[in-house]
């Protein structure tokens, strides 16, 4: 969608490993994520529930600890600064300013007893201590108008706004300090379809006008097709495929990607009853797979071959800019 102009890199993630601790030892929720993001580019992170998408998003914000996880290794670099290596105070200075996040559920992401405008002003003043209340209020009103919320709503409580309006307000909070990178966790999942389209359009306009990079966490391939330039597919914490959006849709090179694409509802007219394709089995949880490919038990091309059970397939380049972690990626059919 948005053209990657001159591809200035705004964010680089290297070998990020995030773990939760449990009685049975550490559980790896994100196992070696690596990617970069260019200004104006949109990266989609897709995968089933429990594949580690949200954990990865939180770790990218430097907030893994706040959600009970721990970054084991790896780096998250913004403009050459590794956020994870910074002390917490300086890390806080980056959050909201360089990288901002819009949360999954706008209804619960605003404090129910505090006006939307005040929460917006709070964000503005967290990074601009010189701003007076009047200035912050002014900017809050402008931000709301920019995302399509009437400026008068600045004094309303979250419960007085609709879900779509709240999601817009959430985006206003995210863009309040002109961040270089915006992370949107399921930005439209809680909304109905017409509102979804509006929000996606809003994202597109904001990216075009601000040049920020966007990371969008979703399980909705509709959103991916609408908005995303590149796609990172996660399974059991691992990156199984990373490619531009056209390659993902037309020539997926990982059986999991192919299976996800097959299981999305289609609009083609079918005669008689048709069933939605599903991937057999349940997604592997973190720590459940000790050796081999985490997807092998549900894989339709493995056919029980030994290498799948013994060797964890590395992420290798299988096409131009396309990475896949499958021993038999050549056998994958869309």
């Amino acid at each position: 969608m948005s053209v990657v102009a001159a591809a200035t890199e705004v964010m680089r993630v290297r070998d990020l490993v995030v773990e939760y601790s449990s009685r049975d030892g550490p559980l790896r929720a994100v196992d070696g994520a690596s990617f970069e993001l260019a200004a104006g580019e949109t990266l989609g992170i897709v995968g089933e529930s429990g594949s580690g998408k949200t954990t990865l998003a939180m770790a990218l914000m430097g907030l893994a600890e706040a959600s009970g996880a721990k970054v084991r290794s790896g780096s998250v670099t913004f403009d050459g600064v590794d956020m994870l290596a910074l002390p917490s105070r300086r890390r806080r200075g980056l959050r909201g300013k360089v990288v901002a996040m819009s949360f999954q559920d706008p209804m619960t992401s605003f404090n129910p007893v505090w006006t939307v405008g005040s929460q917006l002003m709070e964000t503005i003043r967290a990074h601009d201590r010189q701003a007076t209340r009047a200035e912050a209020l002014d900017r809050a009103r402008n931000l709301l108008e920019r995302v399509g919320v009437p400026a008068e709503h600045v004094g309303l409580l979250p419960e007085q706004l609709s879900g779509g309006m709240l999601q817009r307000a959430m985006i206003a909070v995210a863009i309040a300090n002109q961040p270089r990178v915006i992370i949107a966790d399921e930005p439209v999942t809680a909304l109905d379809v017409t509102v979804q389209a509006q929000i996606l359009q809003l994202f597109r306009e904001l990216l075009a006008s601000t040049g920020a990079g966007l990371i969008i966490v979703t399980h909705d391939f509709g959103v991916v097709a609408e908005l995303v330039d590149r796609v990172l597919v996660m399974y059991a914490g691992k990156t199984v495929e990373l490619a531009d959006v056209n390659s993902i849709f037309h020539t997926p090179h990982h059986p999991y990607t192919a299976a996800l694409l097959r299981s999305r509802p289609k609009l083609e007219v079918t005669i008689g009853r048709s069933r939605l394709a599903a991937i057999p089995g349940a997604p592997a949880g973190p720590g459940e797979v000790s050796a081999g490919c985490p997807f092998r038990s549900r894989c339709q091309i493995s056919h029980g071959r030994d290498i799948c059970a013994t060797d964890d397939p590395p992420l290798v380049e299988v096409g131009k800019g396309q990475l896949s972690a499958c021993h038999f990626w050549k056998e994958v059919t869309p």
Binding site: M61, L63, A66, S67, R92, G93, L94, R95, G96, K97, A100, M101, F103, D105, T108, S109, F110, N111, P112, Q119, E122, T123, A126, H127, M170, V173, A174, A176, N177
Partner: peptide, 12 residues
């Protein structure tokens, strides 16, 4: 609560 996490994410 989610809103506390959100506040942290905005640098509070």
């Amino acid at each position: 609560a989610e809103y506390v996490l959100a506040a942290k994410a905005f640098g509070a």
